[in-house]
Design a binder for these strands. Structure first.
Lengths: 358, 358
DNA sequence: ACGGTTAGTCGAAACGCTTCGACAACCCCT
DNA sequence: AGGGGTTGTCGAAGCGTTTCGACTAACCGT
């Protein structure tokens, strides 16, 4: 493994000159630069990351901290990662993904104090997230994907849930739906203050009220069974529902299954919109789901770019940016089954059309 | 940020003594050790990772290299990651996930030559995988999850596809199924030599032949549409099929959708087994899928443990280990619809029972 | 013709740790 | 009593960079 000394010797210059060629911190004549670059090429020189990090006190590593639960990473999260990795790599940084859960704060603290990370991007931020404080105490610059409750002085990028929900509701209302049920994450998740769950809830209430409609909301466990239960509850509470808006990517398959069991055809009897869903998942269903596609890769890129800007400029540029999901219409939404004669809502299950199936 | 010097001064010992307390490379008296530990606690000392890495020429970082395509990480891959991370963390190593695709070999080479990784675990190994050579040239010890074509001198852990397929086939045959179709990954993937696709194909042929049955195999694109097309092709080729064995986690939802469209009930008319599938995904379907659950977290743990053993002992312990998937019976398999009167296979579509729907 | 910049280069001192050689002190055999 | 091990500690020499201060030479305006 060639070192800088070897390069310097071969190029007949001093070590510091080689360093200046590499870092560009001081002017170097073209002739010298060429000699040095030639020597580096000949020796297949690669700077030693540890030595560089020690001397410069900057590792050129940024961490992407994502809690990994057993559910796995959806395509949405993966898009974050690839977007972030691309941005980091383009800037000459390494992006390391660290599966630190919200639980192992000590692990995180250790990681941070070891000066191995120049900065960090946090995924899956909770409204009360100990990781934020831990990193701030350790002096690690950070950018969130998502938001904590109090965002003052914090840099973040997040999905614009408000606009996303509004757009989804408008799509359904535009198709004539008046009785729309929102299937959120579980009650526990909402109570825990999980940002997307809380914010979409509020946004749904606002959007429905804006249309003069009553917001019906049902929580659901993150599973197919949870989805089935939620749909049952939804039909209890609003037997005349014609559309379901679901935040819960796991529950949605249960919802679809239960609809099929009850002989309700999608989208003929009930329209379904899936929120913050990747095209890949949307296509798994039959018919493919109309969904609000999350701007995953853009979010990842923006987060890393904001972080690097703050690292290089040292500026406390409080970057706060929201991106809405894009409405992608597929086969699961259609016109409301019948003109909403009485918006008050009937108390009997209306006659449904057609045979079961799909 | 306290350094070792500070600790040494406070404890009234030399710097090297502090180091020995930390690394245990030389005996230290209990009294001294206590003094040093007390000083470390008081100063909230954390060793500087860069300095340690530079001096010891070992970063205590192992990389988990996983190509991240847009499909995202399934629960199976996520289990690899969590298993690996847990094992690394238990041994005092950091696991960094690097989303290096098979494409950016130069990126990988750079990463490797920068001496930032003590070793690497490769996921999603191709039969011809340039990353293996790149890492070997850079002198980075590695362990594969999956296998290349030629595994001599390579350490790996992998799924025992042979046994997994055999067990799945036995389950179906035990239920009376004789006409079983295997839906593999796409033809292109198989042609590219993707290990799981190739190995399951061979294993399926062997298992079916072992039972005196004809192996019918259909490739499918990794999407719901691919699954639908595959089922259509399967019914063309084997109209009397009573069971589908699917390797393709994405296609399986298309298969189920198409079965429903055709009015074939699962498991009444057709049994479905999903291979190398996580419980989470299996539960998404209605009915939940009987599946061969991959030993993801165990594989990840074993891979890291093998890697660390090789790092610490320096031993060229050619760790090669296979783990089968576990059969988990859920609702998608049942007895074959009718006794296989003539195993030769009919040439007309037999009458199917019952109404459509789940 | 002369001080004042600026461009280009060098040597040496960090950076915070590990590790090697040395050495004192002690213990155990014979 | 003297040699051979251990045990426990220290000082110093790296590890491969970056970065600071210093120096030379060329160039500027006056």
């Amino acid at each position: 493994m060639a070192t800088m000394h070897d390069v310097a010797r071969l190029a007949r210059v001093s070590v510091s000159t080689v360093s200046y060629v590499l870092t560009g911190t001081r002017p170097i004549s073209q002739a010298t630069r060429d000699k040095v670059l030639a020597a580096m090429a000949e020796l297949d020189y690669q700077p030693n990351a540890m030595a560089r990090g020690l001397a410069s006190r900057r590792s050129r590593i940024v961490g992407l901290l994502m809690p990994m639960d057993e559910r796995g990473l959806g395509a949405t999260e993966t898009a974050f990662v690839t977007g972030a990795a691309a941005a980091a790599s383009a800037a000459g940084y390494h992006l390391v993904l660290s599966p630190v859960g919200v639980g192992d704060l000590d692990d995180l603290r250790r990681l941070a104090s070891q000066r191995m990370l120049d900065g960090a991007v946090l995924m899956e931020v909770q409204v009360e997230d100990g990781r934020v404080a831990a990193l701030q105490e350790a002096g690690v610059p950070l950018v969130l994907i998502g938001r904590t409750g109090d965002t003052t002085g914090l840099a973040y990028v997040d999905i614009d849930f408000e606009q996303t929900v509004r757009q989804a509701v408008e799509h359904l209302v535009g198709l004539g739906h008046r009785r729309i049920v929102y299937v959120n994450h579980s009650a526990a998740t909402i109570a825990a203050g999980y940002g997307p769950a809380v914010r979409t809830r509020d946004a749904f209430v606002a959007a429905m009220s804006g249309h003069g409609l009553e917001p019906v909301m049902i929580p659901a466990e993150d599973s197919a069974a949870g989805g089935r239960a939620a749909l049952t509850a939804a039909l209890d509470q609003a037997p005349d529902l014609t559309a379901v808006l679901a935040m819960n990517e796991n529950a949605i398959f249960g919802i679809l299954g239960e609809l099929a069991v009850r002989g309700l055809a999608v989208p003929h009897d009930v329209s379904v919109v899936s929120m913050v869903t990747s095209p890949q998942v949307a296509e798994l269903a039959t018919p493919a789901l109309t969904a609000m596609t999350s701007p995953g890769s853009a979010l990842g890129r923006m987060a890393v770019e904001a972080l690097l800007r703050r690292l290089e400029d040292g500026g406390d540029d409080d970057h706060q940016r929201l991106l809405p999901c894009a409405l992608e219409i597929r086969g699961s939404t259609g016109p409301a089954p019948r003109p909403t004669a009485a918006a008050g809502g009937g108390d009997t299950v209306p006659t449904r059309s057609g045979p079961p199936g799909t």
